[in-house]
Amino acid sequence: MKPLRVRVWRGGIEGAFQSFDVPRHASQTVLDVVTHIQRALDSTLAYRFACRVGMCGSCAMTVNGVPRWTCRTHIDKAVGGKNEITLEPLRNLPVVRDLVTDMREFFDKWARAKGSFEGSKSRRDGFVPISPESQNRKQVDSAIECIGCAVCYSACDVVAQNPDYLGPAALNRAWTLIKDERDEKTLARLRAVAGDAGCHACHTHMSCTEHCPKQLSPTAGIAGLKREVLSAVLEGRL
């Protein structure tokens, strides 16, 4: 089998692509290829990974223009019949070096969307029973599975055009908390996610939903936030 030609982004915001030839193997993932480059061809290559099995989300990169988890992307699927692949850091985030991005802004936006749980009970109050069949719980059954890999944030064109936009992941997180019956911060959260930097900025392009490696739909959560904010405004709570 012919070696795979891999074009890898080197540098920070300023930089250039460097090409490597990597041996092909059966069932080879993009992360396998990056690891081969770093271990066998150029030890100065910077990239990020941890679990290698699609649980942590830290190996997300732009593969042939598409944001993906590299550990769960087979080379055969990514190259699309060609023998060349291009690897870049995630879009919409500052590049630290090579394939590593600075995730601070991404997680700061979770905080701005009031993405932390705030209950009113102490450890002595016991558990609050939430029925799996309750409407609120069913609406966020899949959304709570987000692991914060930033693939959706990288795929979002609104983030690219409006740097203040909180982004799909932070809004999805806010949606899961608003539907959490134990949480006490709904109004403050609705205020945080409404408007030009929040859910109303979403153009429903659905890039987040299309590219989410866990097949979640942040778009549906954002639509839910729009409904919740509107109800709060009409009822005079916001």
Partner: peptide, 12 residues
């Protein structure tokens, strides 16, 4: 602009 005003613009 307040969250309420931005929401009303969106509704309008």
């Amino acid at each position: 602009m307040s969250a309420r005003a931005q929401t009303l613009l969106w509704v309008a």
